[in-house]
Design a protein around this nucleic acid. Structure first.
Lengths: 172, 172
DNA sequence: CCTTGACGTTTGAAGCTTAAAGCATTGCCG
DNA sequence: CGGCAATGCTTTAAGCTTCAAACGTCAAGG
């Protein structure tokens, strides 16, 4: 890439899919708009995490899980909460451990399991990142009124429930 | 990963971020829910594209852009529409060309630019994939009523506009 | 005890993604 | 005409991500 080519200012991902002759256009347009919003936020957050803290979104997410859990989590538990594969967490944990932000201990009860914890430094570092992150999200979503945000939150809750149900039936 | 470990059935990504003492919790919860919905759909679509067609979402998206454009696009134009980097498109195009789904021609007017087009086979293949894709999306979002879908679409439109505005002001 | 299956993690191969640097071409402007 | 910035693309290094296979451990049954 010659210049960073600001992704956020690019044309649009919407209406990306054409040609499908059936009905269902409705759902497709909704999905594309959902995807566009998520991509816009996510790209910007990744960019800011990199510029402000030299870190990445997956690293930040893993630290957030540990902070939230308080008392340490196994790799598998983190994998489930982050909705990513086991192997992915293995690599992320290795990098964060090398940076001294987390430490791992073999569980005394189950020698297969590794428990991850934030180090002192990890906790301090995450606190800084987390505060900035919260502000960024507020800034990016601040264009919506409080009422719109509430409605959106509620409808997305329904969407999520519907998705879980659909995935429960089909996934094989 | 021992078994595929169905990501879709994992706990939740919501409430992933804790500790931030400020206000703005509102926006954060909205963002996490948005992200959860998108991740659930996207993971499932990736899985089905792989199982049903042995392809990936980025490949499918690139074909969709070409189908939609009709008359061929340069790599740079595709990069902007897909909201990904130039280098990314270079690699994707190389793989799709190797598979015989697209072909490239150097633009007669500008010898820097490469124009991509679907091959006959690419057009046929994409038609199959696209039809299935549209059905999957309808299935996954079918849990919402038509009214909810319409409201969601409208609110996400506002969110998108607000995001573009916020990114216009800040991005340096 | 020993097998068998389940579970937690790691490894390896492949693909996706980015930022940054570099190359070639174009177009403008003095 | 001669720079010179902008544009289009490719390359490189690093990281993220997945799937599949492999390894070690555990737990239950025979």
């Amino acid at each position: 890439m010659t210049a960073p080519e600001g992704l956020a200012s690019s044309v649009d991902a919407e209406t990306a899919l054409a040609g499908a002759p059936e009905g269902h256009k409705d759902e497709l347009r909704l999905w594309l708009r959902l995807l566009t919003c998520t991509t816009l936020v996510e790209t910007e957050i990744r960019r800011r995490l990199r510029l402000a803290f030299g870190t990445t979104l997956p690293r930040f997410d893993l630290l957030a899980q540990l902070e939230r859990a308080g008392s340490g989590l196994t790799l598998g538990e983190i994998s489930r909460r982050m909705m990513v594969s086991n192997g992915n967490v293995t690599g992320l944990a290795a990098r964060l451990e090398a940076e001294g932000l987390i430490e791992r201990r073999t569980s005394p009860a189950d020698r297969r399991a590794q428990t991850l914890r934030l180090t002192q430094r990890g906790r301090r570092e995450f606190a800084r990142q987390s505060a900035a992150h919260e502000g960024w999200i507020a800034e990016l979503l601040g264009g919506l009124s409080a009422a719109d945000r509430a409605t959106l939150h509620r409808l997305l809750g329904r969407a999520k429930a519907g998705l879980r149900a659909a995935l429960q039936e089909a996934p094989p």
